[in-house]
């Protein structure tokens, strides 16, 4: 088995419009404090549609090392690269209300498998941004290539982590 780290292809966990992290209204993400990545802004009409829920899926295949109602981290099989998906901003304050877990912390997940069911509209109605930052944790800024821009659906290529 080769010791080389394979290129990690990260896919979009939610549908929406992909933009740079600098578009996220929170310096933790926009200033890249926890790593580089891509932000997915909700689809038009999602901001106020309280009842409609969607499934956020795993962006890579790996171990679901952290699972909160509003955010999760999947660690790649190399054991050193983790991808964070954070559903909305400051959503920890919602204390899980409106978020349904569809997986268990500690289990192995395939890319594209549902992890959390949530409503971006309900998050927006609670006064919080519903943008979803997807972050390559602790990666250097130049480690990412092929970042998506524009409309993406779940499972679309989002970025590549060398």
């Amino acid at each position: 088995m080769s010791e080389a780290i394979d290129t990690l292809r990260v896919v979009s966990p939610v549908p929406g419009t992909a933009m740079g992290l600098e578009s996220v209204p929170d310096p933790t993400f926009s200033a890249g404090m926890v790593g580089p990545g891509v932000a997915i802004h909700p689809e038009p009409g999602q901001e106020g549609g309280q009842d409609r829920k969607q499934e956020a899926v795993s962006p890579i295949t790996g171990m679901l090392v952290k699972l909160h109602p509003h955010a999760f981290v999947v660690m790649a099989s190399d054991g050193s690269r983790g991808v964070l998906v954070h559903l909305g901003i400051d959503t920890v304050q919602l204390a899980g209300e409106g978020f349904d877990l569809m997986a268990t912390q500690g289990e192995r997940v395939e890319a594209g498998v549902p992890v959390i069911r949530w409503s971006p509209g309900a998050v927006a109605a609670a006064g919080k941004p519903s943008v979803v930052p997807v972050v390559a944790l602790e990666a250097s800024a130049d480690a990412l290539t092929e970042e998506a821009h524009g409309a993406v659906v779940r499972g679309d290529p989002l970025f590549v982590w060398e």
Partner: peptide, 17 residues
């Protein structure tokens, strides 16, 4: 800490995962 954000008496310390 990767960063520190202070707003009045609320101090957010960004430490990573």
């Amino acid at each position: 800490a990767h960063g520190v954000l202070t707003s009045g008496s609320v101090v957010q310390v960004v430490v990573g995962p």
